[in-house]
Design a protein around this nucleic acid. Structure first.
Lengths: 393, 393
DNA sequence: CTTCTTTCATTGACAGCGAAAAAGAACCAC
DNA sequence: GTGGTTCTTTTTCGCTGTCAATGAAAGAAG
């Protein structure tokens, strides 16, 4: 949610212009004619939408001899000038803040990490503001204004109001984050749930480009899921959506912190794997990397822990696909480091649980460095800047 | 999908007019001012949209002394003239066809049942056509034209093309139903999946009115689910969506016909209940009604079968709600006849499996007579008539 | 070397939609 | 009456995106 107007106003975006711009953002350099086909607008409308954006420097054009059609007038390619604007993306976790300075195409220019001394807003907010100031200073070197700030936080976040309703991890309730940070930094601030933010980034800049129905499943400290249905990110009526981690797969399974048994998260998230590891080996394994080393050393009991986790993830994805019929499921998160150990379990369990043609769904993995969470936050800021209606009802 | 133009053309519907019309359809008699608020259009736009529709007789107006505001000019109420047009809705099952003649407000005027002699298209299509002709004759008595025909069939149905891609129940593959029946009857034909059609009816005329995110769960011979997300029915990329019946809840559960164990359908659908019943009593129970009588007679073992089924349904709804965060879940289907036996299990299992605030989701029941499936088909025909963009991408 | 064909891009006219503003209508309260 | 309130309509107006025609830039064909 924008809170403060920036000095140089954003271009006024009509619906068509916004559509054209996002199409160009996601589909790299393409011709006007191709843009017309993808957006189903008339060629004339493309010309009209492109020109003012080009005059403002947001779009540039050039020719690609290779892409010339076999016959007919050669097309000129149009693309977004990534360097025309900068955005800051911030992901807040329980013990650190990850921030990135990203360009208009959401490519990370500068990453930053800061450890947190505490989780309450009094500790975290100044840290965010300081980090933003630092990146704003860095941004001066690019000679381009920072046009927005996105903040991604796990939990129930109201993007429209910029309020963190409830974040169990940070133990925050009803923190008007956009307003506070917007006032402190003078930037338009967008606040969103972290998984949704990552989903936005994948939708516009990653493996979800061009899809209007897909799911992003993140495996790591928890199991998360972002959903895009009918081309828009699903938010959930009560602040809950994508809680695939708490699908209960087995009434006799391990107890989950949510109170149920057999949740995916209680089988396949880092803490569950570490626990399984300790039970299998007797060693006090406390870090995911350590567990991974052990598994790769070949202990079959240890590998079994991962196999079971993969199976749980595969089943959960099967359930998801049966329910929603997405075109693609993207598996990501730090847990992917152990994907070779998960893979078979995921594949088999998915194939077994997918109903009918649902098994045709494209299930893929996408390793993303941890700073991608912050990049997701930047993507939400870019969305707000462009005036996309992704979140309107 | 329209296939044949009707003699008297449908009113040309601009986006605004279509929006106004559907708002009036769903929200009964309301004032223009109220319509403007709900659609977020200007009062002027309402006037412009309403007038031509009123001239064509689709809308009528009147005053309601009771609804007069305390102060100010009394509003006049506008509503859809239900009797202005008729539609036929048809639901095809494995052994019978249910048809209804419905008015523009999707109220059933005449219901019809016909038993089928076979399931192949050569047997079913003539039966459909004959039934339509019969209802067309009946419709003459109303002095109003039948403006569309909707057909609902379980399985993978491509509504846009009017083709039944694959119906396991009927063993149909790639039957261009809309084209065939359209040619035979001269009516514009809409073909859709049966659960989706019922979901449409609930969305426009039932418990889903005004909601943009809800789920309809049907309990009966199978367990089905229709989803509305972002105001539109979810179709699924590979023809599969809403397969809540094949969520696997227990790896040690009963074997399902899909090959997995512990599917909701293998626990809570009619065949599963009958089987449980036979195991509990030793009696050869073959009809759902019979089973219900037995349960009501008080046998605790028998009641346990229903309790377990209710639990499975509750868990499945919990999973659904965790994933999608709908505003409401509507439970319906013939299985509701046994709802008093399911209720506790559903409620408890849902409460236990819903994560966090997801438990606030409104889970309600809605008993619908069996002909409602055919009414759903009629609703899809009305959608097509109005030119709603519910299904466009 | 000219002319045709094909594709891409632009132009200008145009229709239509929906918003804004203002006026009109119908009622109540005083 | 008169003023206040709410609903409805009228008029005007800007804006948008389509349409149809034109121009531009190539290769292909004669």
């Amino acid at each position: 949610m924008r809170s403060t107007p920036s000095p140089e106003a954003a271009p006024a975006m009509t619906p068509a212009a916004s559509l054209v711009f996002t199409t160009l953002l996601s589909n790299g350099p393409i011709t006007r004619a191709e843009t017309a086909r993808r957006t189903r607008l008339s060629p004339a409308a493309i010309t009209k939408a492109v020109r003012p954006l080009m005059e403002l420097g947001y779009l540039v054009e050039g020719v690609d001899e290779g892409a010339r059609p076999a016959v007919g007038r050669p097309a000129s390619l149009v693309w977004v000038d990534a360097g025309r604007a900068l955005f800051i993306g911030i992901k807040v976790t329980g013990d650190e803040i990850i921030a990135v300075l990203a360009d208009l195409c959401c490519r990370v220019r500068i990453p930053r990490h800061v450890r947190l001394k505490g989780r309450d807003p009094e500790k975290v907010l100044p840290a965010i503001t300081a980090l933003v100031q630092e990146l704003l200073t860095e941004a001066d070197g690019f000679g381009v204004p920072v046009r927005g700030l996105g903040i991604a936080i796990s939990g129930d976040v109201d993007r429209a109001d910029g309020v963190v309703r409830y974040s169990p991890f940070l133990e925050w309730r009803d923190v008007p984050l956009a307003e506070i940070v917007g006032t402190a930094t003078g930037l338009p601030v967008t606040v969103d749930n972290d998984v949704r933010a990552l989903t936005v980034a994948e939708h516009w800049f990653g493996a979800g480009v061009g899809l209007s129905n897909f799911a992003l499943v993140t495996v790591g400290a928890g199991i998360g899921c972002g959903l895009v249905v009918h081309g828009r990110v699903v938010s959930g009526a009560h602040g809950v959506a994508g809680e695939i981690g708490h699908l209960s797969l087995d009434p006799l399974g391990p107890l989950c912190h949510c109170g149920n048994r057999g949740c995916v998260e209680a089988i396949a998230a880092d803490p569950a794997i570490l626990r399984g590891m300790r039970e299998a080996t007797g060693k006090n394994v406390t870090a995911a990397a350590e567990a991974l080393d052990l598994a790769h050393s070949g202990d079959p009991g240890v590998r079994q822990v991962y196999a079971r986790a993969g199976e749980a993830i595969g089943k959960a994805i099967g359930s998801l696909v049966n329910l929603l019929g997405p075109e693609r499921v993207i598996i990501s998160g730090e847990g992917l480091a152990a994907y070779d150990l998960f893979a078979e379990g995921i594949r088999d369990a998915f194939a077994a649980s997918a109903f009918g043609t649902a098994s045709q769904c494209d299930v893929m993995t996408r390793p993303l460095p941890f700073e991608q969470w912050a990049r997701g936050a930047a993507a939400t800021a870019i969305q707000s800047f462009i005036g996309s209606d992704t979140y309107e009802e």
